[in-house]
């Protein structure tokens, strides 16, 4: 029971990170119908930027944690957003209207490029960061010796995710930007005829997705304390699985899917085998796509003849 509870907390934390990345996939898919394969790499870039910012701040003597964290998140979001914007601009926009698989192929190319760009500039070895936020709240202290604990870091991650989710949902449902985005999702041509700047809206979608991924990247760095240039691939595939599981194109679906994947992965490693935890995620991806491609909260697609 205690073990179960502890795994539940760990799973929700992991799921929050996946959920934040998944939003980037789901929004881009919703608006231009492409799988932004490079999104996992955006997440990885976010975590590298966060790490470098941390080290720079440490070097110039700023160590007050709240300020450090705030600066990390702001700089990481801004710079990663710039990456998101640039990638869309040079790799995806010229291909709108090309054949259907073209953007997916460029996205794979972009993903390979980014991975190797980081590898070349930052080295292939892992970057460890000692835990910065320690301690937590002990929820249960059973006589058997197993302690159920939720760490401050976990609390920060979950709280941050909730705040971002709420803010984001408001942005999509209440602002004119969100309305334009939904209009583009429904019918890009019509939206542009009605005066929506489609290019700008799509760019902003990438920018938003990238900045959320940057937050996820920073939290991953702080939570696991170790990153390398390859983390984006697996995390990206899992987040994409989350987006599909939740129903691609749906924001609450992405979050729900993220939580589900996080929980499944944690429980799988906790109760079955750690070695095959990625097999679990990949199998879920295959099963969901094959048997319920519209996911939990998505709309089913009707084949047009």
């Amino acid at each position: 029971m205690e073990y179960f509870l502890q795994q539940l907390i760990n799973g929700v934390t992991l799921g929050s990170i996946y959920g934040l990345i998944a939003i980037g996939y789901t929004m881009v898919y919703g608006i231009i119908g492409m799988i932004n394969f490079a999104h996992g790499e955006i997440f990885m870039i976010g975590s590298f930027i966060a790490l470098t910012v941390f080290l720079i701040l440490a070097a110039i003597g700023i160590t007050f944690l709240p300020i450090v964290l705030l600066l990390m998140v702001i700089v990481a979001m801004l710079c990663t957003a710039a990456w998101g914007w640039t990638i869309e601009r040079i790799a995806y926009r010229p291909l709108r209207g090309s054949f259907r698989l073209a953007p997916l192929i460029t996205a794979i190319g972009m993903s390979i490029f980014l991975q190797n760009f980081v590898q070349v500039t930052q080295g292939a070895r892992v970057k460890p960061l000692p835990p910065q936020i320690q301690g937590g709240i002990t929820l249960m202290d059973s006589p058997s010796g197993i302690v159920v604990q939720i760490s401050w870091m976990q609390i920060i991650i979950i709280a941050m995710t909730i705040i971002l989710m709420v803010g984001f949902s408001l942005l999509i449902s209440k602002t004119s930007l969100g309305r334009q985005q939904r209009a583009c999702e429904q019918d890009r041509k019509m939206a542009s005829l009605l005066g929506v700047n489609v290019d700008r809206t799509i760019s902003l979608t990438f920018v938003m997705g990238a900045s959320l991924a940057a937050v996820a990247g920073m939290m991953y760095l702080l939570y696991y304390g170790v990153i390398d240039f390859y983390i984006g691939f697996i995390a990206g595939v899992k987040a994409f699985t989350a987006a599909v599981l939740g129903g691609i194109g749906s924001l609450p679906g992405a979050m729900l899917g993220g939580l589900a994947i996080g929980l499944i992965e944690t429980f799988w490693s906790g109760y079955f085998s750690v070695e095959y935890k990625d097999v679990a995620a990949f199998s879920i991806l295959a099963i969901v796509l094959i048997f319920m491609p519209s996911g939990l909260l998505g709309r089913p697609e009707v084949e047009k003849v």
Binding site: I90, S98, A102, S111, F113
Partner: peptide, 17 residues
């Protein structure tokens, strides 16, 4: 090599799909 591979994939797709 992989850096060039990735970049070439993007450029070829954009320039000559």
């Amino acid at each position: 090599r992989m850096l060039i591979f990735g970049l070439a994939m993007v450029l070829i797709m954009v320039w000559k799909p």
